[in-house]
Structures are given as structure tokens and as C-alpha cells.
């Protein structure tokens, strides 16, 4: 995924969906709005999962992990559920390739590009900032790079994905974004 590194400001404007228009400084941690992405929820029988992933040139991730090839990522969400992230320009190709490669095997591919919004949280304080609302142990020993899961941040469901030791990609339903932004901003003041 391409991340545009911008100068972070403590009080940028927010768009209609609650994401900051520019990078946001949360103390020493920075929050970057993710660019528009094509997003699909793939549901498939466990035995057909590898085939579906291969259709996109990806390996099927293990439980609680993501697999990546270039700008495409498959995030494990559940035993038969995956979240696919890709460039918006690839949307139709992804639909078509899967249909072609699945050879009549049942599956469900649903476009959720607009359901989710995402941001990146990066910096040495990112983990502790997330732990103000997330109940999981995010120590790299327990939540290593490449791990992903759905979980709660205070009262909002979201998908957490550790890109590197100090960077998290966070996906959530768009209407919950202002709530999560508000909590992160307040907690950053408290840190």
C-alpha cells in the first residue's frame, strides 16, 4: 500500500467520514488517513481458500495473519472469511479473476470498499496509544508484525493489522471513525 508521508498537524480538518484530511499528530505518534482502496470480503469454504487467494497471486494467510503481494493484501478475519485490500483500479480485475479461477466452486465476494475506512498509526507510542482502548496484549511478542485480527477499541469494532513494529493499519466501519478519532486524540493528550 502506498503511504504518503505528510507533515502531521495536531488539529487538521476531518472529512465527511471522520478521517483527517492530512496527517494527524497524536503526541509522538502520527496518524495517516489511508488512501482509497478496493476492499472485498471473501467468504469461501476452507478447502477452497487457497485457490481463491491464488487467483489474485496471493498465498492464503494463516489464522490471524495477513499475506501480501505487491499492493494486494489478504487479511484473515475468520476461518472462512478474508478481507482483500487492493488498489481501486484493480477492482474489476479482482472480481473477474476470481470468477474465472474458481471453476464453479461456491464463494461469496462482496464489495465493501466504502463500508470501511482506514488509517495508519505509526510511531514508538502507537502500541501504547492503541492499548488505551484495545484490550489485547499488543507487545510484539504476543502480537507480532503481520498479525491481524478483529477486536474492539472501546466500543467500536475494528480490524487491527501490524505492518511493522511501530506501525498499525486499522480498518473500521466508516460511521465509527469520528468516535475512534476522538478517543485517540483525547488519549494522546493524556499519554
Amino acid at each position: 500500500m502506498r503511504e504518503t508521508l505528510m507533515d502531521a498537524a495536531p488539529h487538521p480538518s476531518f472529512d465527511e467520514a471522520g478521517l483527517p484530511l492530512t496527517a494527524l499528530a497524536l503526541g509522538a505518534t502520527k496518524l495517516y488517513p489511508a488512501p482509497d482502496l478496493a476492499r472485498f470480503v471473501l467468504r469461501v469454504r476452507p478447502e477452497d481458500g487457497a485457490r481463491a487467494a491464488a487467483a489474485w497471486g496471493l498465498s492464503l494467510p494463516d489464522a490471524l495473519r495477513a499475506s501480501t503481494h505487491k499492493d494486494r493484501h489478504v487479511l484473515w478475519q475468520g476461518p472462512d472469511e478474508f478481507l482483500l485490500l487492493a488498489l481501486t483500479s484493480e477492482k474489476q480485475e479482482i472480481i473477474d479473476r476470481l470468477q474465472a479461477e474458481m471453476g464453479g466452486k461456491p464463494y461469496s465476494l462482496v464489495d465493501v470498499s466504502h463500508r470501511n475506512q482506514a488509517f495508519l498509526l505509526t510511531g514508538e507510542g502507537a502500541q501504547q496509544l492503541l492499548e488505551t482502548g484495545c484490550m489485547l496484549d499488543l507487545d510484539p511478542a504476543s502480537f507480532p508484525v503481520g498479525m491481524t485480527t478483529r477486536t474492539l477499541f472501546a466500543k467500536a469494532d475494528l480490524t487491527l493489522w501490524r505492518r511493522d513494529t511501530h506501525t498499525f493499519h486499522i480498518e473500521l466501519w466508516r460511521s465509527f471513525m469520528p468516535y475512534v478519532m476522538g478517543l485517540l486524540q483525547q488519549s494522546a493528550v493524556a499519554a
Binding site: 461469496s108 465493501v112 466504502h114 463500508r115 470501511n116 466501519w173 466508516r174 460511521s175
Partner: peptide
């Protein structure tokens, strides 16, 4: 059959 929430899509 599979179910996906699209309320916010």
C-alpha cells in the same frame, strides 16, 4: 451461503 454486512457500503 455467506452473509456480509453492507449497511455502511
Amino acid at each position: 451461503v455467506w452473509l456480509t454486512s453492507t449497511t455502511e457500503q
